[in-house]
Design a protein around this nucleic acid. Structure first.
Lengths: 195, 195
DNA sequence: TTTGATATTGAACGGCTGTTCAGATAGCCT
DNA sequence: AGGCTATCTGAACAGCCGTTCAATATCAAA
C-alpha cells in the first residue's frame, strides 16, 4: 500500500499553511513568493505543488478554513436565554476569537481581492452567514422590545466593524487586559443598541 | 528659462498619482507594476521616475496626501459649541469624507506595511493626530458630564473603526441614502457614549 | 531485500520586476 | 529661426516570478 505513520505529508501540509499564513499576513499575498514559503518550511518551491494546485488556492484554503473555524466555534458557544445575553456572548466571542487568530483575520479582510470570482463568492457567503448570526440576535431583541435600533443590518455591520477594530491596536501585556477590553466594548455595544 | 504654461509635468504628475491610487486600491501595491501605472497614464515606465524617486515613495506620497487632506478638511469644519455638537460633526464628517475618497482610505488602511520604518512612522503620527481630535471631544464631553464612557481612548478607536466600516458596504444608490446612513450611525454613536 | 508508492529536488520555461540612462522629441523663449 | 531644456522613449540590467517535470531519495510493506 503506502506509508502511513511518519508520512511527511501529514506534517508538511499544515506547516505550509502555517508559514503561508504568517508570510501573507506580514507582507501581503502578492509580495510573498512561492519560493519564500517553501524556504520557510525548508523545501524547494516545486514541492509546494504536491499540496496546492496553485498560489491562489493556497490563499483560498486559508481564508475558507478561517471562516469555517469561525462559524464552527460560534456554533459551539451555548446560546443564552435572552437576546441581551446572546448579544453579550457574541461580543465577547468575537473579540476573543479574532484576537486569537489575528493573522487569519487580517488575511480575511485584506486579501479577498486576490481571489477569483468563484472563490471570492464562497468566502463572501460565509462572511454573510456570520453576519446573519448577529443580525438574528439584534432582530430578536428588537422584536422583544429590549433593543432600540433604527436598522438591524447597519447595526450588525457597525458592531462587527467596531469589534474587529480591536485587532488593530490590542497587544498582549498592554495597558488593558483582554477581560477589561471585553467589558468596555460590551458596555458600548449594549448602549449602542439601546439596551 | 523653461517652459511654463502647458508644461506637461503639471498634468502628468497628478495623473500618475491618480492612476497609481486607482490601481493600488484595486489590486494592491505589490501586485501593481510601474509599467502598469505608466500604461494607464500613457507613458513608458522610465518616465515615472521624473515624478517619483521610487515606487515606495509614490505610495507614501498618496498616503501622506490623504492624511494631510483629512486633517485639513476636519480643521475647516466649524467647531460646534458643545461636545455633543462637536461629536455629531465628527461623525458626519468622517463618514462623508471617507466615502468621497474610498480608494485613498482603503490604501491608508491596507498598504501601510509596504512603507519603510520612517515613512510608516510619519503616517502613523498623522493618524494619531486625527484620533486625538476625536478623543479630545470625548474627554470634553466626559468632563462636562454629558458623556458616560469607561475609557476615552478605546471609545475613540471603537467609534473610528465603526464609522470607517461604512466604506466596506456603502454604495451610491443602494438601499439607504447617505444622509440616512449618517443619521443612523450618529444615533448609535450618541447612545454608545451615553449621551 | 526487493518492491513500489510517497515525498522531494533541481533545473528549466517564458515572462515579468524596479530602475537606469543615452538618445530622441517637443515646445517656450529670445 | 534657432537654441535650450523639460519631457519622454526604448532598450538594457540583473534578478525574481509561478509553475512544470524528469530524476531521485526515502521509507513502509511484502
Amino acid at each position: 500500500m503506502a506509508r502511513k505513520s511518519g508520512s511527511h505529508s501529514e506534517i508538511t501540509g499544515p506547516r505550509i499553511r502555517t508559514e503561508a499564513q504568517r508570510l501573507f499576513a506580514r507582507h501581503g499575498f502578492a509580495a510573498v513568493s512561492m519560493r519564500q514559503i517553501a524556504a520557510a518550511v525548508g523545501l524547494q518551491a516545486g514541492a509546494l505543488y504536491l499540496y496546492t494546485p496553485d498560489k491562489e488556492t493556497l490563499l483560498f484554503d486559508l481564508l475558507k478554513g478561517h471562516m469555517d473555524d469561525l462559524l464552527a466555534a460560534w456554533a459551539r458557544v451555548p446560546a443564552a436565554a435572552t437576546p441581551l445575553g446572546r448579544l453579550e456572548s457574541f461580543v465577547r466571542f468575537h473579540i476573543r476569537f479574532n484576537l486569537e487568530r489575528a493573522e487569519a483575520v487580517f488575511l480575511s479582510y485584506m486579501e479577498l481581492r486576490n481571489l477569483g470570482p468563484a472563490n471570492f463568492a464562497a468566502i463572501e457567503n460565509l462572511r454573510r452567514a456570520y453576519e446573519n448570526e448577529l443580525e438574528a440576535i439584534l432582530r430578536a431583541g428588537q422584536a422583544e422590545g429590549g433593543f432600540l435600533l433604527p436598522d438591524s443590518k447597519l447595526a450588525t455591520l457597525a458592531i462587527i466593524a467596531m469589534l474587529t477594530g480591536v485587532n488593530i491596536w490590542f497587544r498582549e501585556g498592554g495597558r488593558l487586559a483582554l477581560a477589561t477590553v471585553e467589558e468596555i466594548y460590551w458596555d458600548m455595544v449594549r448602549k449602542a443598541v439601546g439596551a
